[in-house]
Amino acid sequence: MEELRNRDGLTEKEFLAKYRPGNYERPSVTVDMLVFTVEDVRPPGRSVPDKVLKLLLIRRKNHPFMNQWAIPGGFVNIDESVDAAAARELKEETSVEDVYLEQLYTWGEVNRDPRMRVISTSYLALVPGEGLKPRAGDDAAEAVWFTVRREQQEETEGLKTWNLFLESRDRSAEIRYRVTEHFTKNGVLMAEETQLLPETRDRLAFDHAKIVNLALERLRNKVEYTPIAFNLLPEEFTLTEAQKVYETLLGRPLFKANFRKKILPMVVETEKKTENVRHRPSQYYRFDPDWRKKNEGF
Rank of each mutant, 00 (worst) to 15 (best):
2 E>M: 11
3 E>H: 10
3 E>G: 07
5 R>F: 02
7 R>C: 13
8 D>F: 07
9 G>H: 07
9 G>M: 13
9 G>T: 06
13 K>L: 14
17 A>W: 01
21 P>V: 14
21 P>H: 14
25 E>R: 09
31 V>E: 03
32 D>Y: 11
38 V>L: 00
43 P>T: 10
50 D>I: 05
63 H>R: 07
63 H>P: 00
66 M>K: 15
66 M>N: 08
66 M>S: 12
66 M>A: 05
81 S>Q: 09
87 A>V: 03
87 A>F: 09
87 A>T: 01
87 A>N: 07
91 K>S: 07
92 E>P: 01
98 D>P: 02
104 L>C: 08
109 E>C: 12
109 E>I: 14
116 M>K: 10
117 R>M: 10
120 S>D: 03
121 T>D: 08
130 E>P: 06
130 E>A: 10
139 D>W: 13
142 E>A: 06
145 W>D: 10
147 T>W: 01
148 V>H: 06
148 V>P: 04
157 E>T: 10
168 S>H: 02
170 D>A: 12
171 R>V: 00
174 E>R: 15
176 R>E: 06
176 R>A: 07
179 V>Q: 03
180 T>M: 05
180 T>L: 01
186 N>V: 13
187 G>Y: 11
189 L>S: 06
190 M>N: 12
194 T>M: 10
207 D>G: 06
214 L>D: 02
220 R>A: 02
225 Y>I: 14
234 P>V: 13
236 E>D: 14
236 E>H: 08
239 L>S: 08
239 L>Q: 03
242 A>R: 03
246 Y>C: 00
248 T>Q: 02
261 K>R: 06
262 K>W: 13
273 K>D: 06
276 N>I: 07
279 H>Q: 14
280 R>D: 06
285 Y>R: 00
292 R>I: 05
298 F>M: 07
